[in-house]
Simulated scan of single mutants.
Amino acid sequence: MSATIDLPASLQEIADDFAELPAPERLQLLLEFSNGLPALPARLADHPELLEPVPECQSPIFLLTEVDDDGTVHLFFSAPPEAPTTRGFAGILQEGLDGAPAATVLAVPSDFALRLSLAEAVSPLRLNGMSGMLTRIQRQVAQKAAATSA
């Protein structure tokens, strides 16, 4: 049984964008996502202890999710500019999932990083780092969504 779990439309569009490009241009698109990653709001930048580290990443990256009372997810990342691949992955997740309902975020399949057609452009360790980001996001969302519905 090899059914593939569908991606949310926002992430599917990003995955399609990567798949349509020749391999060398995929890395350039990843770098564009790196440049688009928003800075932390001051309330988080002044309190880095509120962010969770992602040790699977080769670069120091930290993240935090917030879930509104209506179940809307907000994602925040701290990733150094010297780590454009890691920032790019964070940018993809931020663009594709920020503002989505908690159920949508929780339904993203664990193999999402592999669906970006980047295996030729980045190392398996880097793809593992993106999977680590997604795992932490989903855990935080599950915990916070449960707390807001309790």
Rank of each mutant, 00 (worst) to 15 (best):
L29N: 05
A119S: 12
A146C: 09
A39N: 14
G36D: 15
S123G: 14
Q28A: 15
M130N: 03
E66T: 13
V67M: 11
S34T: 07
P124E: 02
L64A: 08
F33N: 01
S110N: 14
Q94G: 02
E32T: 11
E52W: 03
L106Q: 10
T86C: 06
F112A: 02
T4D: 07
L63W: 02
L30Y: 03
A103D: 15
P80Q: 12
L125A: 14
A15Q: 02
G132W: 03
A113K: 00
I92Q: 04
L97H: 05
S78L: 12
S149M: 11
D16M: 11
P55S: 13
A113Q: 06
Q28Y: 08
E25N: 14
D111W: 06
E20P: 02
H74S: 15
F77W: 03
M133I: 12
G91H: 08
F18R: 01
I61P: 00
P22E: 10
L97I: 04
L63F: 00
E13I: 07
E20I: 09
E25P: 02
A145S: 14
L21G: 05
F33K: 06
L31K: 12
L21P: 05
S131V: 10
E20H: 12
V141L: 07
S2Y: 02
Q12I: 04
P38C: 09
P84S: 03
A150G: 15
P38D: 09
P48H: 11
A9L: 09
E52K: 11
F77L: 04
F62D: 00
G91N: 03
S10F: 08
A145F: 11
A113W: 00
A39G: 10
A107M: 12
L40F: 08
L106P: 11
K144D: 06
F33M: 05
R126M: 06
L118F: 09
P80V: 03
D16C: 04
L30F: 05
S10D: 13
G129E: 02
P84D: 02
D68G: 15
P124V: 01
E20S: 14
L37M: 09
P8V: 13
L106H: 12
E13N: 13
A79Q: 03
V105M: 12
D17M: 10
L125Q: 11
